[in-house]
């Protein structure tokens, strides 16, 4: 289980995280939501060891993560950031193969090839296998990067705004893949997501951050309520329920809250 204990992050005078203590349920999909600048990505990147905490610590199964060797950590926790970061000309297959880097350092064995094939099949990327990533659409690139992360075969997956710049179809594709990873493979998935409706539809657990603190955390039913979302985003929400789940409408509030 991943847990964070009194985590702080300061940039000079500015406080981004102000004492966060949380634990993330195992084998569940948890969404981190909140307004811009709430510290969601900062928290996620710290769990992924891509940022140092100013104070406090993150623990994996009770062990402070700084004490785990980076290679060993990469076999337990995979982090996916936005696809724009990648500007190399690699084939999809090659990119996914790099997911095996923590295991084999680049020399793939039979076991690694199996993991690569499985990741590609899992996301239905077979037709793109030999294509260059820099020639794909944004959505396909994001899928290819997710393929690399899946090939890493970690128990924990961290994703920083994986739906950014994606059209609806690709966004749904990615969220469904994450849901399946959780249900079929027993992965624990943590993601930062801006679209409250995606968070409400696909999550088991939601953590809402505001101004560097935990605003509220709990199951979807507990967090996705009109009063809580209104306080979180300072917007007027109307939530309707149907067989497909809750739907939050905040697009044309009848009055100005500010």
């Amino acid at each position: 289980m991943i847990s964070v204990h009194d985590l702080h992050k300061h940039y000079g005078q500015r406080t981004v995280l102000d004492g966060i203590s949380l634990s993330f349920p195992e084998r569940r999909l948890t969404s981190l939501i909140g307004p811009n600048g709430a510290g969601k990505s900062t928290l996620l990147l710290m769990i992924g060891r891509l940022l140092e905490a100013s104070a406090g610590e993150v623990r994996l199964a009770g062990q402070p993560i700084q004490r785990i060797a980076s290679n060993a950590y990469a076999r337990r926790v995979a982090t996916l950031r936005q696809a724009t970061e990648l500007n190399l000309r690699l084939r999809v297959e090659e990119l996914v193969e790099f997911g095996r880097f923590p295991y084999c350092g680049g020399r793939l064995h039979a076991d690694d090839h199996r993991a690569v094939d499985q990741a590609i099949a899992f996301l239905g990327l077979d037709s793109l296998r030999q294509r260059y990533v820099d020639e794909l659409s944004g959505g396909q690139r994001q899928m290819a990067l997710l393929g690399m992360t899946i090939a890493q075969e970690t128990d924990y997956l961290l994703l920083d705004e994986p739906l950014n710049n994606l059209d609806m179809r690709h966004a749904v594709q990615i969220m469904r893949a994450l849901r399946r990873l959780c249900d079929e493979r027993g992965c624990t998935v943590l993601l930062v997501v801006h679209d409250i409706n995606f968070a409400a539809s696909y999550s088991d657990h939601i953590v809402a951050l505001k101004a560097g603190r935990v605003h509220c955390a709990g199951s979807v039913a507990e967090v996705v309520t009109e009063t809580r979302l209104r306080a979180l985003y300072e917007l007027d929400f109307a939530i309707s329920y149907s067989a497909r789940g809750p739907l939050c409408n905040y697009f044309n509030p009848p009055r100005d809250l500010s």
Binding site: G48, R49, L50, S70, N71, A72, Y73, A74, R75, V77, A78, T79, L80, R81, E85, L86, L88, L90, F98, G99, F101, P102, G105, G106, R107, Q152
Partner: peptide
């Protein structure tokens, strides 16, 4: 292989355990 991973950027490289 390491240099290719370096070329993916510090974020990806670190999360691949490099």
């Amino acid at each position: 292989q390491r240099f290719t991973v370096v070329g993916m950027g510090e974020g990806i490289a670190t999360s691949l355990g490099l």
